[in-house]
Write a protein that binds this DNA or RNA. Structure first.
Lengths: 178, 178
DNA sequence: ATATCAACAGAACTTCATTCGGGGAATATG
DNA sequence: CATATTCCCCGAATGAAGTTCTGTTGATAT
């Protein structure tokens, strides 16, 4: 009888429940977030486990959603996208407008966040030129509920990476109160 | 005489010079940016090439820097990072302060951009709790040149992805002028 | 004290990545 | 116009890696 381990099919959203991440998991995650092409044999030497053991952990990390996916990180300028900007959108009703959600269909839109503050939405958009930016803003203003926008054009990017596995303990404790 | 194609060592920013990306490259890039674990045999069926041909193209895309790297995308909350925020920093002198560049050492800091507008810097930071955010801001204010900050706490993220291979032609032309 | 379960290592197996040799189309050269 | 040259592709072969299987160990629960 083959039991399928996946068939939970239930509430899987709070990933990593039932098994907290130990230091080995974090080590693996840190390594894979920097270079996901490394072999399990290679990783096994770094974390002190056998290749199958690492494989099993990675499999679990994927299944539980800790590793959302493995992706190739592309170079914007090489694709003709030299123009990066953050657009703060002042929305009337409130976020989640059907039109605003449809922004995700544009490959130029990389991030959409609902935020606190005077603006309700922050967009990260990357395109080829200022003219495209203009076209994008027009499209934005045509949407119902968009009252205004504030655009911050990126002059240079000094750091850009995904979620990091590490944390800085000092931040949430200790010497905050000087 | 082996000529090393890399030894330009100069201005490499416009990677992919000498060979424009064709539609097959874009198809491959689009696929790999969504799932970099797909096999070449699999990709070959999608783009209509043989596996070695796809491999060769990917190899070149890596070598020329179009594919910056392949990474595992991690799930923040699973790692205990439930708190995402954009921090606009009003810097006195101007960007690239040694201290600000050192922010990259904190795994909580995911992005650092120099931008136009009243603020000179936009930071994307992800941490475990508001207390950590507080600690981070304190650390920020201790830096020379930091005049003020404005923090936008992310309430919900509707879209978050890397550079997309596709483009929307309409944006930079045509019906912009309504 | 015994049964149960989770995690790991070593070996076997399978699939994939990678290299090699050759062919064809387009471009450059005489 | 004919002939090299170059680039890009394919099919086959090789090697390395991913993946599965089985037994063992240690811890926990009965």
């Amino acid at each position: 009888m083959d039991r399928e381990p996946e068939e939970t099919d239930d509430v899987r959203r709070n990933a990593g429940r039932g098994r907290a991440l130990d230091s080995l998991d974090r080590k693996i995650l840190g390594a894979l977030s920097e270079d996901a092409t490394r072999s399990y044999a290679d990783l096994s030497k770094e974390v002190g486990l056998s290749a199958p053991a690492v494989h099993e952990r990675v499999k679990r990390l994927r299944a539980t959603g800790v590793i959302k996916r493995t992706s190739a990180d592309l170079h914007g300028p090489s694709l003709g996208k030299d123009f990066l900007a953050f657009v703060h959108v002042e929305a009337a009703g409130w976020g989640k407008t059907e039109g605003i959600m449809a922004l995700g269909e544009l490959p130029e839109v990389e991030e959409v966040h609902a935020v606190t503050g005077d603006t309700g939405l922050i967009l990260k958009v990357r395109m080829d030129c200022p003219e495209a930016m203009e076209g994008f803003l027009w499209r934005l203003y045509d949407m119902p509920g968009v009252r205004g926008t504030r655009t911050y054009v990126v002059l240079s990017t000094h750091l850009e990476r995904g979620v990091q596995a590490g944390i800085t303990p000092d931040l949430s404790q200790g010497d905050n109160l000087k």
